[in-house]
Design a protein around this nucleic acid. Structure first.
Length: 456
RNA sequence: GUGGUUGUAGCUCAGUUGGUUAGAGCGCCGGUUUGUGGUACCGGAGGUCGCCGGUUCGAGACCGGUCUUCCACCCCA
């Protein structure tokens, strides 16, 4: 055999069964998106590099797949540029396009570009693949799907409330109960940074705090100290590490820490509003949890931030995330356009549903009946019947060759087709159809009409 | 980007300190059975041992590189 072909690292082929299961998830999500009033849009798989670069931080830029210019892309490079071997100077000259890294930034670009045609507040959803040049590992691919819903043009906190309901709605519809929607507020993080005198180190501070449940209190403090946050400041954080109790009481203790920070108190006020609303509306299967360590890497969030974790016992990173961004369209020149959005990680949700055995049996829309081929005349009669079945929405097929009976039956068996129809000499003469139930082995002679009703 | 791990038949995997012609189970194809699948029995096909190079009289096995798998870190869906 020749050298086997292959696909790039971190990409996957999907067989029919996987496609059926994946589309079960996306259809469920779509349905919920529509119920909440979101309309679909799509954007190109690649954008101009400057649309994407610099929007996800240094780490993000490194993970963006760059597309090499067409033609003789080295022609215009000067000798000095070439000799310098500076990646950051050379890359923009040989690559002017890049694969999209998420759906949020292209969406912001879309809103700014089409602002005059859009009715605000604008509610859109988008289900498309994104690409990241990451190293693959569990639940992590280089090509994966995001399912995003965003609203721009409204600063109302009711949007946040509705998004939490939407999360709950989707996971309930997928029969995935026990998810936890973690919520925090960027303003609270800013407030804390302010109180401990580390406003300028907000990112370092949040990245370190985010690791609390993973590496523990001491290591977090070490990392903060290492990043240049003062010991005095870190000591002020102590109450943070001792936060306990329910949503309400955690917020009360935070209030005292943040009493001197205007922005911090604003964040708390927002959280309280959302929590009160959700408490009175009630969630179906998900649980809303305040998590002060929740940071989320993307630096465009300015208000609420969300992250959804799978039910306890399933080892999987977050299966969804999102938040409020007050100025995302600002980077493309449209000011004062607050937005908030959430994302579902299709590929990870798939892995979770698979692990918990939550896919319904019926997701695969298999052929219902196979007509055995006995020869040209018989096949012709079969095709007529097949056509009427198809007209009635019954998945039917005719075995294309007059192969041996055993081979044809075997095919039906392997494909798990539940019924076969036999039309030979006898049936041709009497204009009838012998229907065989593959699981019981029973068979009976029927008219076309009876066949139709049996298979419906 | 850092560290580890994996690759032998379509699939799951054996293969001893380097030594003849690389094996098993399942699957596949054919037959027993020319209008009846699953079971049984019989027979058969299928491998440049991921790829490139090195050491050796001799490499599936040892060494280097590379690609790939999975995992952890970083970061993230």
């Amino acid at each position: 055999m020749a050298q086997k072909p292959s696909i790039p690292k971190g990409t996957r082929d999907f067989n029919s069964e996987v496609v059926a299961k994946r589309s079960y998830i996306t259809e469920t999500i779509k349905q919920q998106f529509k119920i909440y009033g979101f309309q679909p849009i799509e954007t190109p798989s690649f954008e101009n590099s400057d649309t994407l670069m610099g929007k996800y931080g240094e780490e993000g830029d490194r993970l963006i797949f760059k597309i090499l210019n067409s033609g003789d892309y080295l022609k215009k490079i000067s000798d000095t540029d070439y000799e310098e071997r500076s990646e950051s100077r050379l890359t923009p000259k040989i690559s002017e396009k890049a694969l999209r890294y998420d759906l949020t930034v292209p969406f912001a670009r879309y809103v700014v570009q089409h602002q005059n045609e859009i009715e605000f507040p604008f509610k859109r959803y988008q289900i498309q693949p994104v690409w990241r040049a990451d190293r693959p590992q569990k639940g992590r691919f280089r090509e994966f799907y995001q399912c995003d819903a965003d609203v721009v043009g409204s600063a109302s906190l009711f949007q946040e409330v509705e998004f939490i309901q939407l999360y709950d709605g989707v996971f309930t519809a997928l029969n995935l109960s026990g998810t936890t929607i973690k919520i925090n507020n960027r303003k609270i993080l800013s407030g804390i940074a302010e109180v401990i005198g580390a406003q300028d180190k907000l990112i370092d501070f949040t990245v370190a705090l985010d690791k609390l449940d993973k590496i523990g209190e001491e290591k977090v403090k070490e990392e903060m100290l290492g990043k240049g946050i003062s010991q005095v400041g870190i000591d002020k954080l102590q109450p943070l590490f001792e936060l306990t109790g329910d949503f309400g009481s955690q917020i009360e203790s935070l209030k005292s820490i943040l009493s001197t920070s205007e922005i911090g108190l604003k964040g708390i006020e927002e959280l309280e509003f959302i929590n009160t609303a959700i408490s009175s509306l009630e969630l179906k299967t998900a649980q809303l949890q305040f998590d002060v360590t929740l940071a989320r890497g993307l630096n465009y969030y300015t208000g609420a931030i969300f992250e959804v974790s799978a039910p306890e016992g399933v080892n999987m990173g977050s299966i969804g995330g999102g938040g409020r961004y007050d100025n995302l369209t600002g980077i493309f020149g449209l000011k004062n356009m607050s937005g908030v959005g959430i994302s579902f990680g299709l590929d990870r949700i798939y892995l979770v549903l698979e692990e918990l055995g939550l896919f319904p049996e019926s997701v695969i829309d298999n052929t219902k009946v196979l007509f055995i081929n006995f020869g040209e005349d018989e096949a012709m009669a079969c095709l007529k019947a097949v056509s009427s079945l198809r007209d009635n929405g019954i998945n039917a097929e005719l075995y294309p060759d007059a192969a041996k009976m055993k081979k044809q039956m075997n095919y039906a068996n392997k494909r798990e087709i539940p019924f076969v129809v036999l039309v030979g000499d006898d049936e041709l003469k009497t204009n009838s159809f012998t229907l065989k139930d593959m699981s019981s082995g029973e068979q009976q002679k029927l008219t076309l009409e009876d066949l139709m009703t049996k298979l419906k």
